[in-house]
Amino acid sequence: MSESTAVRVDPSNERMLTAWNGNEGALWARRAQRFDDGVAAYRDTFFSAADIRPADNVLDVGCGAGQTTRDAARLAVDGSVLGVDLSGEMLGVARRIAGEERVPNVSFVQVDAQVHAFPEAGFDVVISRHGSMFFGTPLAAFANLAKATRPGGHLVLLTWQPFGLNEWITTFRTIFAAGREVPTSNLALSDSLETEALLTSAGYTDVRCSAVSKPMYFGQDVDDAAEFIVEQHGGRLSDLDEAARTDAVEALRADLAGHQTDRGVFYGSAAWLVEARRP
């Protein structure tokens, strides 16, 4: 039996399982450190809000290669942290690094957090750094997470604001559209009022979305950043001829050069810090 068929998912999440347990997850596993470095500027804000105590039991949703899981475990030194994700390959990276770094109080499970039977009221804190925006049925997913959060426990999410407020994605979408229509769709949880209503309906209270803007890192120089971005987004050029593909990559490199600093290549980004409590 393959890993994909072994994972029980809600039918609405089958497409996400195919992506994250397939090519998408393989890319993120291969480039785990770069993806973590990209959003590193959000770390302190995120964990300050999470307010993890030494004895806490923590659930990390969409944990990927496990950096936030390990960071949480170093705070919950007398507790435990469970990281869950759909990507078997990323979880393999997470387990390997946790072993190398000797973080003993973490575990990782490949499940669909929308339907997995977590221990009822089993977690003091539920966190997700950009991993909670992909549920097929968000209300069911967050109701399941609320059930797993102990009364008085809290939820902390980092989600993207609308893409129009994120310089990095609007720039890359425009360049890789190469003169075609630029995609305008946003990820879920990008509308703060909708997010507040969603989490309230799911069983949380005191929901608050705070706007946070940080520089996002893409590479040490133009060559490094271009290689990474093309690896991630270059499939959007596959239906173009060679000349058009070359032009798009050159346009990317020119834009990256304008964002080069002495610390690397950075673009502006905008996120929501979402906080909620389980009554």
Rank of each mutant, 00 (worst) to 15 (best):
Q161H: 05
P11Y: 00
F266Y: 13
L157T: 09
H116E: 08
L59D: 03
V58W: 12
M16P: 12
V274I: 15
V249R: 07
R180C: 07
H154I: 04
T174L: 02
A197R: 15
A202L: 04
G179L: 03
L155W: 11
F134P: 04
T170A: 10
D241R: 07
T171H: 11
N105C: 01
E3L: 11
F47L: 03
D85Q: 01
A143E: 12
R129C: 04
A202S: 13
G88P: 03
I169E: 09
A117K: 15
W20Y: 05
N57W: 12
V115Q: 05
R95W: 02
E89W: 08
V274C: 05
A32G: 14
T170C: 09
A19Q: 12
F123A: 00
G122V: 02
L273P: 13
Q114Y: 09
V39Y: 11
D247I: 07
A50P: 04
A211S: 15
A41G: 02
A121K: 13
G92K: 05
R70C: 01
R30T: 14
A141Y: 05
A141G: 04
N23L: 10
L198Y: 05
A49H: 02
A254D: 13
V39I: 11
V212C: 06
G268H: 06
L240R: 04
S185T: 15
W20S: 01
E101V: 04
L75V: 03
V61R: 05
V7H: 05
D60E: 04
G219R: 06
R74F: 00
D191W: 06
R150K: 10
D112K: 00
E3G: 12
N166L: 09
V111A: 09
A98N: 10
D239L: 06
E14G: 01
L155D: 04
R180M: 07
G92W: 00
G258P: 01
N13S: 02
A121M: 07
E89M: 14
M90R: 05
E14K: 11
A197Y: 12
V111W: 11
F176V: 03
V77R: 15
V84A: 02
Y42G: 13
S210P: 05
D206W: 07
A76Y: 00
N21S: 07
Y267S: 03
R96V: 08
Y42F: 15
S12I: 09
S2T: 15
G164W: 10
P54M: 10
A141D: 06
S12C: 11
Q220Y: 13
F266Q: 02
R236K: 14
A73S: 00
V61P: 13
A226G: 05
P119G: 10
R253M: 08
S2C: 06
M16G: 12
P151Y: 00
L75Q: 06
P104I: 01
G164A: 15
P215C: 10
G268M: 03
G88A: 09
E275S: 12
R173V: 07
S12H: 08
A49K: 01
A270F: 01
P151T: 03
P279S: 04
H116V: 08
